[in-house]
């Protein structure tokens, strides 16, 4: 039970969690869209981006959301209407389920359970279902191609993602995300504890594979075959408009944020800084301010990681789907298998 909410009645705790969850999903999405999609992309492309709404266009996002909310919610005549309407929500649900296991501070978390990694990998594939639903129910050939490409791609990249996380799990000896964070900040490398032991240093192969898989899971540019706006118009999102397109849009960037959160939890030490900086001996010695500072630290790490994701997105051309599958099965999977093997051997040796 969270210490922060310990004195509150149950309904208040629940309310706090619902609000916290919404913030944890929407805030990263908004940050990523404004910082990277609007501004970084514009600066890379020698233009200014939105400048009118708010200082430096910072309220542009609200304008966009307002515009989308006003639009008519259209479903094609031949579409399987119920599935068509449900699909974006399914995609968004997977994002909310993902954020539930992310620890934001020593006591600031939604749930803390031992199979956290397993749960995270499991619920992340729900979005595949939503995308396939959207592609199939739209009654549009481009959507169908996009949906099928998405299914093939997301399943292919699920595997290297799972395998790259196994390295972390072996090293940490636990699947609890909170314990993984604490181990990274509490640990030491060769007796030097100034950096803690972020798994980025020992699992950098796993980190690379994980980030590439995340790029593919998010269908961002080198792997954006399912959307492929120059080929498939907009892939599985072709027929969506207004509110439901907005949900797809939020889900895309919120998932980018949540995956960046998870990557920083798994590899960069999550909410913590190395405990030795503050002279904390163990988990029990952590000062309570970490429950406020932790989320900020975590969000900073998230912004860095999602910045890298977006940077790659804006610079690279797109791969073909057979090249993409080949890359997953012939490069990423073997690399992560070798990584698991080496990690396991070293774990036994040390």
């Amino acid at each position: 039970m969270s210490l922060l909410a310990a004195d509150l009645p149950y309904w208040a705790q629940s309310l706090l969690r619902v609000l916290g969850g919404t913030v944890a999903v929407l805030l990263p999405a908004g940050t990523i869209v404004y910082l990277f999609l609007f501004k970084m992309m514009s600066f890379m492309q020698s233009r200014l981006g939105p400048m009118e709404a708010g200082p430096y266009g910072s309220l542009q996002l609200f304008a966009e959301v307002g515009k989308w909310l006003q639009k008519e919610d259209i479903a094609p005549e031949n579409a399987d209407t119920r599935v068509f309407r449900m699909a974006p929500l399914v995609v968004l649900v997977s994002t909310f389920l993902l954020v539930a296991v992310v620890p934001f501070g020593p006591d600031a978390y939604f749930t803390d359970f031992d199979a956290g990694v397993f749960y995270m990998l499991a619920v992340s594939s729900i979005s595949t279902l939503g995308i396939l639903m959207a592609g199939w129910s739209s009654a549009n050939k481009y959507s169908l191609l996009g949906g099928l490409r998405a299914a093939g791609q997301l399943i292919a990249y699920e595997l290297p993602m799972v395998l790259s996380v196994i390295g972390v799990v072996i090293q940490a000896g636990t699947m609890n995300l909170q314990s993984i964070v604490i181990q990274q900040n509490d640990g030491e490398i060769f007796g030097f504890d100034g950096l803690g032991n972020p798994f980025l240093l020992t699992q950098f192969v796993g980190f690379l594979v994980f980030m590439i898989s995340v790029q593919a899971e998010l269908t961002q540019t080198p792997f954006d075959m399912p959307i492929a706006e120059s080929e498939l118009v907009s892939g599985y999102m072709t027929e969506y408009s207004g509110f439901r397109f907005l949900i797809f849009f939020i889900a895309e960037f919120a998932t980018a944020g949540v995956f960046s959160l998870i990557a920083s939890v798994l590899f960069l030490g999550g909410w913590g800084l190395p405990f030795s900086w503050f002279g904390w001996e163990s988990v029990d010695g952590i000062d309570n301010w970490m429950n406020v500072g932790g989320p900020l630290i975590l969000v900073t790490k998230m912004v860095v990681l999602s910045g890298i994701i977006m940077w790659v997105r804006f610079s690279f051309p797109r791969m073909r789907e057979d090249q993409l599958q080949r890359f997953a099965w012939k490069v990423l999977v073997p690399i992560s298998l070798v990584n698991i093997m080496i990690t396991a051997i070293l774990k036994v040796v040390f």
Partner: peptide, 16 residues
């Protein structure tokens, strides 16, 4: 050419 292959940035340099 970049846009057709999914790279959005070069076209802005071209327009510039």
């Amino acid at each position: 050419l970049g846009v057709q292959l999914g790279a959005v940035t070069p076209v802005f340099f071209a327009f510039r």
